[in-house]
């Protein structure tokens, strides 16, 4: 657990510096809380991509606290905000646990917009299970993007997973079908279905996802067991729209938040957890193969503040 905390903290270091330094500077030498300070605080929350609704709620909370007189000390304001965010994020803290004895194969369907990091995330999760001695199969259902299959195949080789592909432009549902059949025949523990990146507003492409899901559940009852939405932490409020529309279309069961190693603050997950209550499964904190971690709200907030 400690190792994880360090990693996350390191990954979030930039976030951490930015936010906490500013917050400390903000409260430094301040004895009382005035309107200017509230404005600055609001700015900080906005800059972390926490979003209008949550920010307004938090600031309103501070205001109420001031009125009641229990938040007169700037340090208390800081703790208050930290606690509030933690409380929201805790509801999203549901790590994935797979009962391999009863579910086999366990099927992941991985979706997201273009460039969110789906392929890389699959590689990283597959690596984790592969290292545990599980037999993993990856199905390349991104038949649209040039060289997407090749990219995934390199990952499959790297983690020692079976690989199912068809030619570019073929029907992604057919690849999904093949993958499930192959997994059953080979007694595979886990199946990952990679899908092509698509903007959530493209109705036709969302229909295609529904079809893939339909085929998967027809071929393997209960599957897909996990529909993982991959979100880029640098995304702004649009991430909420992404989560909403993907959820409406196919029912997202978990989120992986990638690219948390930049200066992006990933504050969008606060809004997403609050609004959609979709569990956050993983956070990606770097480019190396083991830089994907289970999401832990306390650690996340701890590293953030």
């Amino acid at each position: 657990m400690f190792g994880f905390f360090d990693k996350l903290k390191k990954g979030l270091a930039k976030t951490h510096q930015g936010f906490v330094e500013k917050m400390d500077r903000l409260f430094l030498g301040k004895k009382t809380i005035d309107q200017d300070l509230l404005d600055e605080l609001e700015a900080l929350l906005y800059e972390a991509d926490i979003g209008v609704k949550t920010t307004t709620d938090l600031i309103e909370g501070v205001r109420q606290g001031l009125k009641r007189g229990d938040l007169q000390d700037p340090e208390k304001v800081k703790t208050f905000i930290k606690e509030e965010i933690l409380q929201i994020l805790r509801s999203g803290e549901k790590p994935l646990s797979i009962d391999f004895a009863s579910t086999k194969p366990f099927v992941f369907m991985v979706v997201g917009v273009n460039g969110a990091g789906k392929t890389t995330t699959i590689g990283k999760i597959a690596h984790q299970y592969s290292a545990q001695g599980k037999r993993v199969l990856i199905g390349a259902a991104d038949t649209f993007r040039a060289a997407a299959v090749e990219q995934l195949e390199i990952w499959a080789d790297r983690v020692g997973a079976d690989f199912i592909k068809q030619s570019k432009g073929s029907d992604p549902s057919a690849v999904a079908f093949d993958s499930i059949q192959a997994a059953k025949a080979r007694n595979t523990d886990l199946v990952f279905i990679d899908t092509a990146g698509r903007l959530h507003t493209k109705v036709n492409l969302m229909e295609e996802l529904k079809k893939i899901k339909r085929i998967v559940s027809r071929e393997c009852s209960g599957a897909p067991h996990e529909i993982l939405l991959v979100l880029d932490a640098t995304t702004g409020q649009n991430a909420i729209s992404q989560a909403k529309l993907f959820h409406e279309a196919i029912g997202v069961t978990g989120i992986a938040l990638t690219k948390l190693d930049g200066t992006a603050k990933g504050g969008i997950i606060v809004g997403i957890t609050e609004e959609l209550k979709i569990p956050i499964r993983y956070v990606g904190v770097g480019e190396a193969i083991d830089d994907l971690k289970e999401f832990n709200a306390t650690d996340f907030v701890q590293a953030l503040f």
């Binding site: 702004g236 649009n238 200066t263 603050k265």
Partner: peptide, 15 residues
């Protein structure tokens, strides 16, 4: 740059 980027867009561009 991705049009969906959040507040970090300016940091990235500036950097």
């Amino acid at each position: 740059a991705d049009a969906m980027t959040g507040q970090d867009a300016v940091n990235v561009a500036k950097s």
